[in-house]
Design a protein around this nucleic acid. Structure first.
Lengths: 258, 258
DNA sequence: AAGTGGTCTAGACCACTCT
DNA sequence: GAGTGGTCTAGACCACTTT
């Protein structure tokens, strides 16, 4: 992988030229995923620039999500986690009837090991947004279920579910372990047969708290997805607010032409 | 907006402490969107640190998408473009029958001015990926339609459509101006009544070329969406490969419980 | 101990915007 | 011309990993 030189007479700043050369080395797989980029010292010597200039170039590629650095070890080409393809059928009733929650269904479909941690359950007043999505009056409470999902031990998703207390209070929905098939199975057992879902998708960079919870590398965005589940009388029975590591997911939808 | 000081005895690096203080000033709206952050000189003086340390703090917030800098003017709290809410009904036949293409329908729904530029049309060999999505044999060609969409003059989306040449060649589909209702209207006139769409969504940071074409600020991800349109005999009749500025869109989907 | 990246300083010169 | 951010240098010390 022969890196060239920087053209000091060019208008393009040195650090951009260096970033460009490294980028194409990464993109062309001259440096494979998981491989190391030359050390900062080597890059300084090779290009004849100051250390800050090298670091500026590396910063560009980290922000693009191409490189990650590990203190004391080196700078590496970022490895992409296996992508999880999410389609509507992860919520299929047949999965619940087999005792599989949606996350288990989607995870085993990709041959990954699902797990859940940081489960917290409470009964609270809903925010105005949740109240309006669940069509609740001012006095009604909600069961709040907060948890983190991991695939093969790597955190990939933080989720918070809100279920009207009038449905969930005193049931397994309000317990940390909601039982086989997950909360949708419990909601259906309580007589609310699910009819449809809506999903609302926003994309942005993570807050520092989100980056920590999902152990995100620099340059990895998050998908903020809010799902509402409706029963057959078109009553909203659950809102699920999730933040996903964008590099770990691909979403697919099918819809009819109207 | 009283910024504090840095605690030099803390483990948390000075630039992180400065970034934290500026972040909460932005988040709490003490500095409103479009407002300016104190200049680098002012921040140096206030915190008693070197310029590079200030710039490191600002870099953090730019990567988070909170700040943008303008050479010679200052550093500003990023203004969010009006969000465009995309739902399945933007492809409704009634819009085509009124002569509105999907982008026009979604744009006017948000009271924005739609426009299109950088239109290029050609007939080419498809890549392996496109060939397989369109279910074509090795010799078939495709009409390639490339263009950029703008809302109120701001670029928000780059799109490339691929239509089998057996359908589009010699029609308005192969001309820069595809006529009222867009290419879906032309495809239906040619006897391929549309039945359904699939959309596949990936999220990542932009390449430098994408960032330039969409004039993206640092810290703004892109949504890569690939849509396939199927006619009533379930034949794929178009693939549309789009890259969208993530801060300009919200996607919504509805799907039945199965 | 040697090598790596992380933080920070103090200075320089340049390009751009505004008045 | 004054003020702003953009690029770059040369050095220092620290924290972490590996041998």
């Amino acid at each position: 992988m022969p890196l060239g030189q920087v053209d000091r007479s060019s208008d393009r700043p040195a650090f951009h030229q260096i970033a460009d050369q490294l980028r194409s080395a990464v993109m062309s797989n001259e440096i494979p995923a998981g491989g190391t980029v030359p050390s900062e010292t080597q890059l300084m010597d090779h290009f004849g620039v100051a250390r800050n200039t090298v670091r500026q170039a590396l910063q560009v590629l980290k922000s693009e999500g191409l490189l990650v650095s590990e203190h004391g070890r080196g700078v590496f080409v970022r490895e992409r986690p296996p992508v999880r393809r999410l389609a509507a059928d992860r919520f299929a009733r047949r999965h619940r009837e087999q005792g599989k929650a949606a996350f288990v269904a989607e995870t085993t479909a990709e041959s990954q090991m699902p797990s859940v941690d940081q489960i917290r359950v409470s009964i609270d007043r809903p925010t105005a947004d949740i109240r309006s999505r669940l069509d609740l009056n001012a006095r009604e409470r909600v069961v709040v279920r907060d948890r983190r999902y991991l695939a093969d031990g790597k955190p990939v998703e933080k989720a918070t579910s809100y279920i009207p207390a009038s449905i969930g209070r005193g049931t397994k929905i309000a317990e940390p372990d909601s039982g086989p098939g997950g909360i949708y199975a419990r909601i259906e057992e309580l007589g609310h047969r699910l009819a449809r879902f809506t999903e609302e998708i926003d994309v942005r960079m993570p807050s520092p708290a989100e980056a920590a919870a999902l152990r995100l590398a620099a340059g990895v965005p998050v998908i903020h997805l809010v799902r509402v589940a409706y029963d057959e009388s078109d009553r909203p029975v659950e809102v699920c607010d999730t933040v996903m590591a964008a590099d770990a997911f691909q979403l697919t939808y099918t819809f009819p032409a109207l």
